[in-house]
Amino acid sequence: MKAIAPLTEERFFTVFLDAVDGTVCVPANTTGAALQARVAPHGLRFPLLLDPATSLSAHVAATTHAPASCRFGQYCDNILGMNWRLPGGRVVRIGERVAKTTTGYDWLRFLLHAGGRLGEPVDYVLRLRPACGFSLLAWFEGEAAALRGCVSRLLHGGWMHWWDAVDFVAEGDRRRVRVAVDCPPGEAPLFTEELQRVAAAAGARLTLQPATGGTLDGIPDLVLKTTPDRVIALAEALAQPAARCVGLGYSGVVHVYLREGGDRPDRIRAMVESHEQALYALGGDWHSRWLPAPAPASAEAAWLVTLEQALRTP
């Protein structure tokens, strides 16, 4: 085959909304509210939002998961492509606008949560999901064992795939399990019955409420990644120093929210120090928008030099 001449110019994503494919390309500084306003008329939604007033890039800079990652996966599974400004200032296209790709090395997932170290996003191509028309928030309360029982039943049963979120929420002395539902209105009774069954079987009290703003917890101060079975214990352990902890049951993530104050970075550092070794042992990690990233491990320094050379070429 005759060799194909290489492209002499970069390809870029332009802003678009593809209602058939359920994809949209928006500037990375679009707020959650503006994004929803753009896609809702097409019966679509981007489920991984934490704060309507905050930009998408700030979401992604703060954490890898949102409550709805339980059903739809992490940010990196829902951001398909981006225009990315390299540290040297040039913009490149990374990833695709289609849901599947094995075309070359996966820079998208590598860069997405790399903080500002390796450049910054300009536009995102997002994968959207059908908005089903009815949303509901379920709160379970009760003894510790009852709450554990709820989480276990919710995650290990066949309904697990259909919960938008199964979260353990610790706030002061209060412990609750939160379930978010997004379903067609006609199916609401089926979902409600199942939630009632779970509450009865686990011996927990159930309260149902409209979901407006239900899992919009805000942008976390500290994020810890562990295995799903350790989420409740970790959220419990951090609940005291924190103002609020939200454990994302299936994702194995704990979002920690702290009271404001000049000593916030010190409080975060103390929390990290008491848990990081246990997290690392499992291949977990932590991240805080208030602390610098840890120094590179010795083995990665050389790889980084090679990559940074390519990224910084003017």
Partner: peptide
Amino acid sequence: AYMPLVYGPDSMRLQWAVPAAFNP
């Protein structure tokens, strides 16, 4: 053979940097 259709000069440089780091 089709890869030149996908990557422009800058993004091609990024692609090549990955094997350059691990399997130069």
